[in-house]
Design a protein around this nucleic acid. Structure first.
Lengths: 216, 216
DNA sequence: TCAAAAGTGTTTAGTTTACACCCATGC
DNA sequence: GCATGGGTGTAAACTAAACACTTTTGA
């Protein structure tokens, strides 16, 4: 299951990638991309491969959510699904449907078509996972482009957490934490330009060592 | 993978259940109990069934940790393992080896024999999972008997977290939280008797609603 | 000059931490 | 009466929350 974000600031929306199923079951329905693990293939590799085959996306961050094997969830027989989330940066998500997929499209997470199988449930699980992980791992920076403004980071956190954050407190905490560093660039728009930052993974490790959790 | 605790107070130790493998591969080695999912069986049910078959334990709390499918981890071929942890209360853990297991025994988590397959790694993952979950779900109360003293609860938390907690702060926080309620009983020993408490699941739900996480 | 977002500190309330002594029981 | 763990409160440090105005740019 692939997430990305789009839009800037208060208009930022979390999006999920769906594919239109080319064959039965649920032919023509929208579904989460996925497929079967090959012999002698690691689970994470399989997730990445299926994603690439169905959508053209490569080289993305993936993380396991969990496994589900409730009988009856797939009309083809008893299957076990291992759910992964992949996060792709806001600035590049070219899509190219192929393989089992007739089409691939980003959907806003709050405006979804009916989904095949039990994919609504998987999606709910994944969102909850993402919300928990936001404070424990640098997932936010996997969704942002390499350079981002603090407003963008904040807006992203708000979308994932589903609640507003105080701007001044957020900026202070994030900057004090030291794992975002200012770059030379600025984001221009039809308003005052904003300082661009990048994520510093090494400083992040150090911070997590003794802080334990992220400030948001 | 089944955990329990044994001993009281500062002597409290976390224990894990291992089975001695009755057949190849790794015949005679100690391993985590487990087996294969049956057709039309839910993953959680399968974990509970295997546990019951191999050790006689029934009706325990289980929770999924995750799935692992690295090629080469099982000499019999490419398998995917879905790891579950089960927690059994300190006061009753009768064991009876059978099925694939020649013997079943509790081991202190810091004094383990060599393990079959990649089970050392699975165990590490499960401990980390437990540590994270301690603050999010009432796992602690699945490990304690129905009635417990605050010192026992504290000692358990310390074992899982791997660090000491301040007694007075711990007691205040837990009692203020309101999801442990005193019972009539007292735990007697060769010292001052301690008040027994029980866990109040309903109050726990209410507490989590607006607190978000446990005080420890 | 207006709209839109960027940027900036301080005060207050709440939470977390550190800490030491008396109590009840069994032996 | 002594050893063992049970039980209790307060002050200080820190962290989190609330809050409003000025700045810079493009249109």
């Amino acid at each position: 299951m692939v997430f990305t974000v789009e839009g800037t600031l208060d208009a930022m929306r979390l999006k999920v990638l769906l594919v239109e199923r080319a064959g039965p079951p649920y032919q023509g329905s929208w579904a989460l991309p996925g497929g079967f693990v090959h012999e002698h293939e690691d689970l994470g590799q399989a997730a990445a491969r299926e994603l690439h085959e169905e959508t053209g996306l490569a080289d993305v961050y993936i993380e396991q959510v969990g496994a589900i094997g409730t009988p009856g969830r797939d009309p083809r027989g008893h299957t076990v699904t291992v759910v992964y989330v992949a996060l792709v940066p806001a600035d590049r998500h070219p899509l190219q449907a192929s393989g089992d997929a007739a089409a691939a499209r980003w959907f806003e997470i709050d405006r979804l078509p009916p989904l095949a199988f039990d994919h609504v449930r998987l999606l709910d699980d994944a969102r909850a996972h993402l919300r928990r992980r936001l404070g424990e791992t640098p997932v936010a920076f996997e969704l942002l482009p390499g350079a981002f403004t603090l407003s963008e980071l904040q807006s992203l956190c708000e979308v994932i957490l589903g609640r507003p954050l105080d701007r001044r407190n957020f900026r202070r905490q994030v900057q004090d934490a030291g794992f975002v560093v200012p770059t030379k660039g600025r984001r221009e728009g039809r308003h005052r330009p904003a300082q661009l930052f990048r994520f510093a993974p090494k400083a992040f490790e150090r911070y997590m060592q003794d802080a334990g959790e992220l400030p948001f």
